[in-house]
């Protein structure tokens, strides 16, 4: 399993961003991520959890919940 809180911890650590009150249905774009920052996030997740999000799959990911569901699915 990969939780929303785990994702938030990665975002807070890597991007020095307070997302403690951000809900899972918030889009990455709305919290300030552009395409390069999303690639950076995918890389941080890969380093910590060994799950690689392909560039094609990243394009279909929009919200924090999308990231959580994708990584959880791969881990299971």
């Amino acid at each position: 399993m990969f939780s929303l809180n785990e994702l938030k911890t990665i975002i807070e650590t890597r991007f020095k961003m307070d997302v403690s009150t951000t809900s899972g249905d918030t889009s990455l774009e709305d919290i300030g991520f552009d395409s390069l920052s999303q690639l950076d996030l995918a890389q941080a997740i890969h380093k910590q959890h060994g799950i690689k999000i392909s560039d094609d799959d990243m394009e279909s990911i929009s919200t924090l919940d999308d990231v959580v569901n994708y990584v959880s699915g791969k881990l299971s």
């Binding site: 890597r14 991007f15 020095k16 961003m17 300030g32 920052s37 950076d40």
Partner: peptide
């Protein structure tokens, strides 16, 4: 100072 710029990681 990080708090004064948008997207400080960038």
């Amino acid at each position: 100072l990080d708090m004064e710029v948008a997207k400080p990681w960038f």
